[in-house]
Write a protein that binds this DNA or RNA. Structure first.
Length: 796
DNA sequence: GCCTTGAAGTTACCG
DNA sequence: ACCGGTAACTTCAAGGCG
């Protein structure tokens, strides 16, 4: 008898507990079957089959139309048509629930119904079938479940220890700790002499992997490409991982590998159901029964890393420092293959990539698990889904709980609306400055004023003044009662996060429990903070411009009132942006200000940090500050931007340090001059001169020839695939005319003699340095020539 | 025809 | 494919001058 049964009933019905790793469905003989892939407490891999769930959608129409509806739906094997009481934007409605047999027929049935006269709306016909199942049953992925089941035979070839069929309830257990999951990271290397690897032309030469028990390299050295692919497939199946990590696998490794497997007539049966990896939602590749995770998606959330190469991300997260790994220019991989004596270096490079990916995966996974179980998207999808989709799936689950119908996705015209207030900063160095921040300002505004699409009162509707909240400036009205959708959802998120943070205080910071809770509270924070942005996203199901617009209007009112009160106290305001105010750290007055905001305005505000010194120019959104512990914050300036050459950023950072810690701008000038001199003498590595910019659209769509666009065109000529989203690195080289005519892809720059030193001095280094130093009277000419008096004497 | 100027196009930041 | 506000660069065309 299977050991994972904790209870066996006389009729063969038992109960099984498992952690839900993946879910998919299939249609066999026009009947849907849902497969839940899981890990049991005793480390077994199982599949739990659900055959009793059917797809459905709702129709909003006069119930009198039910006969016409039935007729129209005849071709689709309708199981039932029922009248059900639901809510739509908070109002009770009677909807017609149409239940079908086969999920694949839903899109067609929906179109048929929508084409009928007198149909107000067809709703929830676009909810993917297995998501529908999880939402309705309250089943969360990446969570522990208990199901009433009976054991069935494992289908031939399927990689599971046991198989079950659901015969009763499936319930979520209250336990956040994931089982020990088997993880596997891989990376492929291709032989490409020209431009980027082309799967039609260039074979795979190496596949490297690292899993929990060790590392391995499969090489085409003996046996060629076919053998590499076969060995990889065999290796993965043998280790039988729950999680597959890769880096940029959705855009590169998977499509490439599948193509090369096809060319070599190899069937990559990597799924636990013997299936091959296949592209699914959000551009992600699904391997059934496992979670295939592209960590490039995770890297997208790391704002600090500007150029998101695997090396950079691994270095940033401290898992593999660049100094401790082999790095090879990806365009020269073939050289390491052609020269047999260099192959060991290539193997090590490939292994270092797999290792970095593996270690990165260990960092990303705990967060991914919490996010997945919070928003309800399967683990592999939650990484690939956008912020908007993550919020939306969370909301869809909440809607079901409240018997609310889910609005349809609509194409809308983009409408703009007013956002937050940014104060003009007081330029100069200020000492002892406190930064006060409203805690979750927008979510709390939405809660307090019940701002929600379902509480919104249109201008033509008559509602007594004291029953609504009226947003300042814009005048949008929201019913005070009953609690709106966003209020309910945000309140529960904020409460949950508060409780978790309380519980964390009682735990050892190093304990597993603490770590799990910390990841969970981070996931909750992400969703809470994104809800306002979601409400103003034109593609959101619960989009309502007035909701977003009213939220920012109340936000502006809050910060304005805070500022006037501070002024009344005689508390000097240095700067403020959206939900923060920078004030002189006069503790008595700061306490009074906090009491006012909490007592009179009813919002929480906190001292987020105190700068011993903070420096502003005239520009908004840019400042730098020195904290008590000696750390330096740089905000907004070139030093933290990804589209300035490293040399300019390094220099600016040092200028900031000198200005803040030594308050000697002229010393900074000397430092800048010294570095300019070094650049002139060829002492700066080319790497530090690369300027990186993203192509925000495809090349043909550009109206002006920007430098990075020209560089990208050249890359294309050289055989690289460039398009929307590509990061283009270029160096400005000598020549005449526009900068764009002198922008050369860095891969094509062979000699330091090519560099346009003048450009780097006058348009990179000096502007970045002056951004800080101009305030102190430094001008461009102070950096040029040996004597800083030169310009002055010239004058007289 | 050359130079200045300001608008438009573009990117990446802040909160 | 979460939002608006903002700075800053480069290009490009219009306007002024001779």
């Amino acid at each position: 008898m299977a050991t994972s049964f904790n209870q066996t009933l006389s009729n063969g019905v038992s109960s099984v507990e498992f952690w839900l790793l993946d879910i998919n469905y299939d249609v066999i003989d026009e009947q849907p079957i849902i497969y839940m892939w899981g890990v049991t407490r005793d480390d077994k891999r199982i599949v739990v089959v659900e055959k009793n769930f059917r797809p459905y959608f709702y129709v909003l129409t006069d119930p009198g139309n039910i006969e016409i509806l039935k007729k129209k739906l005849q071709p689709y094997r309708v199981l039932s048509i029922d009248l059900v009481e639901k809510k739509y934007y908070g109002r009770p409605v009677t909807a017609i629930k149409v239940t079908l047999s086969n999920p694949r027929t839903v899109p067609e049935a929906r179109e048929a119904v929508a084409s009928l006269a007198g149909i107000r709306e067809v709703l929830e016909a676009d909810i993917r079938f297995y998501m529908r199942y999880m939402v309705d049953k309250g089943i969360l992925p990446s969570s522990w479940l208990e199901a009433k089941v009976r054991e069935v035979e494992v289908p031939r070839g399927w990689q599971v220890d046991e198989a079950y069929e659901v015969v009763g309830d499936v319930t979520v257990l209250d336990e956040k700790r994931a089982p020990k999951l088997r993880t596997y990271a891989f990376d492929i290397e291709c032989y490409n002499k020209y431009g980027e690897p082309d799967p039609e032309r260039d074979p795979i030469i190496i596949i490297s992997r690292m899993h929990d028990a060790g590392e391995e390299v499969f090489s085409a050295e003996n046996g060629g490409e076919r053998k590499v692919i076969e060995e990889f497939v065999e290796d993965l199946r043998t280790y039988d991982p729950d999680i597959i990590f890769g880096y940029n696998t959705n855009l590169f490794d998977w499509p490439y590998l599948l193509k090369r497997a096809h060319v070599n007539n190899v069937k990559p049966k990597l799924g636990r159901n013997m299936g091959e990896p296949a592209q699914s939602v959000y551009g992600h590749f699904s391997v059934v029964g496992r979670a295939n995770i592209d960590l490039y998606d995770y890297a997208g959330d790391l704002q600090e890393v500007k150029i998101k190469t695997l090396e950079n991300v691994a270095e940033f997260l401290g898992v593999v420092p660049k100094s401790r790994r082999i790095l090879i220019d990806t365009n020269r991989i073939y050289e390491y293959w052609d020269d047999a004596s260099k192959r060991p270096i290539l193997r090590q490079y490939a292994l270092d990539d797999a290792k970095s990916t593996y270690l990165l995966g260990q960092i990303a996974l705990p967060f991914g698990i919490q996010l997945s179980s919070l928003v309800g998207l399967p683990l592999d999808q939650v990484f690939a889904a956008s912020v908007g989709n993550r919020v939306e799936w969370f909301l869809i689950r909440q809607a079901y709980r409240f018997n609310e119908l889910v609005p349809n996705v609509k194409e809308r015209r983009e409408e703009t609306y007013q956002g937050a207030i940014v104060l003009k900063p007081k330029p100069g160095i200020h000492k002892n400055i406190a930064v006060l921040d409203f805690s979750s300002m927008y979510p709390n505004v939405m809660i307090k004023y019940n701002v929600s699409p379902d509480t919104y009162v249109p201008p033509d509707e008559d509602v007594p003044r004291d029953m609504v909240w009226v947003a300042p400036e814009v005048g949008h009205r929201f019913r005070k009662e009953p609690p709106g959708f966003y209020r309910v959802v945000l309140e529960s998120l904020i409460r949950a996060r508060k409780e978790i943070r309380e519980a964390m205080k009682r735990l050892d910071v190093k304990s597993d429990e603490y770590k799990i809770l910390d990841e969970r509270q981070k996931a909750i924070k992400v969703i809470t903070n994104a809800t306002y942005g979601y409400s103003g996203w034109s593609l959101a199901r619960w989009y309502k411009r007035e909701v977003a617009e009213a939220t920012t209007a109340w936000g502006r009112e809050l910060i304005k009132k805070t500022i006037s009160y501070a002024e009344g106290l005689g508390l000097e305001i240095i700067y403020g942006d959206t939900d923060s105010v920078f004030v002189k750290n006069d503790e008595e007055k700061v306490v009074k200000l906090i009491e006012f905001v909490e007592g009179e305005l009813g919002f929480e505000i906190k001292v987020d940090k105190v700068y011993s010194k903070v420096f502003f120019t005239e520009a908004k959104k840019k400042y730098c500050g020195l904290l008590a512990d000696g750390r330096i914050d740089v905000v907004g300036f070139e030093a933290v931007r990804g589209d300035w050459a490293e040399i300019s950023k390094d220099i600016q950072e040092e200028v900031v340090r000198i200005v803040l810690t030594e308050e000697d701008p002229w010393k900074a000038v000397e430092y800048v001059k010294k570095t300019i001199d070094e650049l002139g003498r060829g002492k700066v590595p080319l790497q530090k001169l690369i300027i990186w910019k993203t192509l925000s659209k495809d090349l043909e769509e550009y109206e002006v020839d920007a430098p990075h666009v020209q560089a990208a065109r050249e890359l294309k000529r050289l055989g690289y695939r460039v398009g929307k989203g590509s990061k283009i690195g270029y160096i400005v080289v000598k020549g005449s005319g526009k900068v764009s005519e002198k922008a050369k892809p860095y891969v094509a720059v062979k000699s330091p003699d090519e560099i346009d030193i003048d450009y780097y001095v006058k348009r990179q280094i000096i502007p970045a340095a002056l951004r800080i130093l101009e305030y102190f009277g430094v001008r461009e000419e102070h950096f040029l020539g040996g004597k800083k008096q030169a310009s002055l004497t010239d004058f007289f």
